[in-house]
Simulated scan of single mutants.
Amino acid sequence: MNRRHTAPMPTELRHFMRAGQHPSRSVACPHCGAHEHKPCRVPSSGRTLAATHPARRTTWAETTACCPHCQVDPGTPCHTDGIPLPDVHARRYLEAEEMAA
């Protein structure tokens, strides 16, 4: 038997090779608990969703992009006058989308 041994694909390339999936699937979903690269699901029924939860998109934008509005680094929540926001600024979403493209 001849077995092919291939090197694992680097994570940076894997994200770009997953056609048709939103880049926010690269982080775990805080709403439904879906793991990285797995689809979101309805917690009560377990039904998988075509789109990701807004909380997952927020987490993804927060972990991958700097916010041009409040000037915070990736991983730091957006804020207004020092008070953390429950969501991120719209400009941070745009910044994350540009980085993913």
Rank of each mutant, 00 (worst) to 15 (best):
V42F: 12
V42E: 15
V27N: 04
C29E: 10
A51D: 13
P10S: 09
T64H: 11
T48D: 13
T76C: 06
R25G: 07
A101C: 07
H53T: 08
P74V: 01
R18E: 08
G82A: 07
R41E: 08
C40T: 07
A101T: 15
S44A: 11
Y93W: 04
A90K: 09
E95A: 14
C67H: 00
S24Y: 05
M99W: 03
H69Y: 13
T11A: 14
C29N: 06
A90R: 11
P86Y: 00
R57V: 01
Y93A: 00
A96K: 04
A34P: 05
A61R: 04
F16E: 13
H5Q: 14
G82Q: 10
M1Q: 14
T63Y: 04
P86N: 00
H31N: 15
P68W: 02
P86L: 00
C67T: 08
D73W: 02
P10I: 10
T52L: 03
R91N: 05
E98T: 14
H31A: 13
R91E: 08
G75P: 00
H37P: 03
A7C: 08
P86W: 03
H15I: 12
L49E: 08
S24P: 04
E98V: 12
S45W: 01
E95D: 14
P74D: 04
A19N: 10
F16G: 09
A90L: 11
A28K: 09
E98H: 11
L94M: 11
R92W: 04
T11P: 03
H31Q: 15
P8G: 04
I83V: 15
A100K: 06
M17I: 12
H22D: 11
R25A: 14
T11W: 08
Q71I: 02
R56D: 05
T11Y: 11
G20Y: 01
C29I: 01
L85V: 02
P30M: 11
P68F: 02
H89C: 05
D87M: 12
S44N: 08
T6Q: 10
A7R: 09
S44P: 00
F16A: 11
G82N: 06
T52P: 01
P68Y: 00
L49Q: 06
H69W: 12
T6F: 02
V27L: 12
D81V: 06
T80F: 15
V72P: 04
C40S: 13
A100C: 06
W60F: 08
A101F: 13
T59A: 12
E36Y: 05
R91A: 12
C70I: 01
H22R: 07
A28S: 15
H5D: 12
V88G: 00
T76G: 03
P23W: 15
A100F: 02
A34V: 07
R18W: 04
A65S: 11
L13G: 06
R25C: 07
D81P: 05
I83K: 03
E12F: 09
P84M: 03
T58L: 01
D81S: 10
E98M: 15
R56P: 01
P74E: 04
T64D: 05
S45T: 12
A51P: 02
D73G: 05
A101I: 14
E95M: 12
G46E: 05
R25Y: 15
V88W: 01
